[in-house]
Amino acid sequence: MRTLGTLKSGESGVVRELRPLSPSVRRLADMGLTRGTKVVVLGSAPLGDPMILSVRGYRLALRRRDADSVVLV
C-alpha cells in the first residue's frame, strides 16, 4: 500500500482513498485530496517535514504523518 507520505520530492501519484478515517482526515478532504486527485511532491521544509505538494493547481504543505492517511492508487 503506497501512501502519499512515502513519496519523495519530484514524485507524483493519484489518490485512491483516505484511510484510516478520523476527524483529522476531514481536513484533508476539505483541501481537495479526494479520490482520483493527482498530487505532485514539490519538496519539503528544510528539516524534511512538512512536505510541499502541488494539488488541484495550488501549493499545499502537510506533515508526512498526515500524508500517510492518503492512500495512493
Binding site: L28, M31, P50, I52, Y58, R59, L60, A61, L62, D66
Partner: peptide, 11 residues
C-alpha cells in the same frame, strides 16, 4: 493525541 497541520502556500 494526533494533531494535524495543513497549510496553503499562497504565491
Amino acid at each position: 493525541g494526533r494533531s494535524t497541520f495543513l497549510l496553503e502556500l499562497p504565491p
